[in-house]
């Protein structure tokens, strides 16, 4: 099944993380914040003019730039 990336999913739709395809410290950091395979994730909203995203992973709400969110692969929850 084709994966989606966190920056492109519709706001409010429930997804699961499948993979953090980002090497190095930033990728490590995302995993430590809870972006582990299977973790529930949701795009809450996008800031206007190409600004960052507001994202909820597990119980944690954070902001994330679109370019970074692109490296987070997701799959729509059943």
């Amino acid at each position: 099944m084709a994966f989606q990336t966190l920056d492109s999913i519709p706001a409010g739709q429930q997804h699961h993380v499948t993979r953090v395809a980002l090497a190095g410290v930033l990728g490590d950091r995302l995993v430590e914040l809870g972006f582990t395979p299977g973790a529930p994730v949701q795009l809450l909203r996008r800031a206007p003019f190409g600004g960052p995203l507001q994202v909820q992973v597990r119980d944690f709400v954070l902001s994330l730039r679109r370019a970074d969110a692109q490296a987070i692969h997701t799959e729509q929850a059943a």
Binding site: G24, V31, T36
Partner: peptide
């Protein structure tokens, strides 16, 4: 650090803790 970052033991340790 392996080519596939998801197989990095450093990350696997974090994933194991979360599991």
């Amino acid at each position: 650090r392996p080519d596939d970052p998801t197989q990095d033991p450093r990350r696997l340790a974090t994933v194991a803790r979360f599991t």
